[in-house]
Amino acid sequence: MTIWMIARGAGLSALILLTAATCLGALVSGRTATRPDTRVLLQYAHRVTASLGLAVLGLHLTMILADSFAHVGWMGALIPFTSGYRGLWVGLGSIAAYTFLLVAVIGFARGRLTGSARATAAWRAVHGAGYGAWALAMLHGLRSGTDSGVAWVRWIYLACLVAVIGSVAARAVVAASPGRFRAVDGVAR
């Protein structure tokens, strides 16, 4: 029973951490903060929450596999939509995990990838798949999570939703202001 509780707690914790990583990612790329020092700190926070989130996600997966009563199994966890238990919603969780992993890997390799013109040009679009992974993770949690009916858990989901929508909106507002060189515009004119 303890394993099952750890699995549930890890799932929720991973969602919270990866939500924070998503929000920080939106804020750091959207130039909502302008001071370079602040943005460096935001970047670190983005990387730390993302790494922790992935680690806790690993724990979530391990515990699900370890729990013989969960009826998910290796196949169900690793191959989307093959789980006996809520196949569709567990499958979405698997896809979210793979996507987060891909996004983290190219995030980690960011500095090295600037060696290639094509990788540099594609980087932002590919890394942006993290937003999709976050949305899938939310659906996965809501529909296959045992605790989704609990009131305070529902509040957490709502807070996650509001946080990401707010960060993305803040980014979109900055991105909509005209022209390139926004970061230096104040200085230059």
């Binding site: 130039r31 970047q43 540099t120 230096v184």
Partner: peptide
């Protein structure tokens, strides 16, 4: 590509 964000200098 450089937009003068200034993180490198920081």
């Amino acid at each position: 590509r450089c937009d003068g964000h200034g993180l490198c200098a920081a």
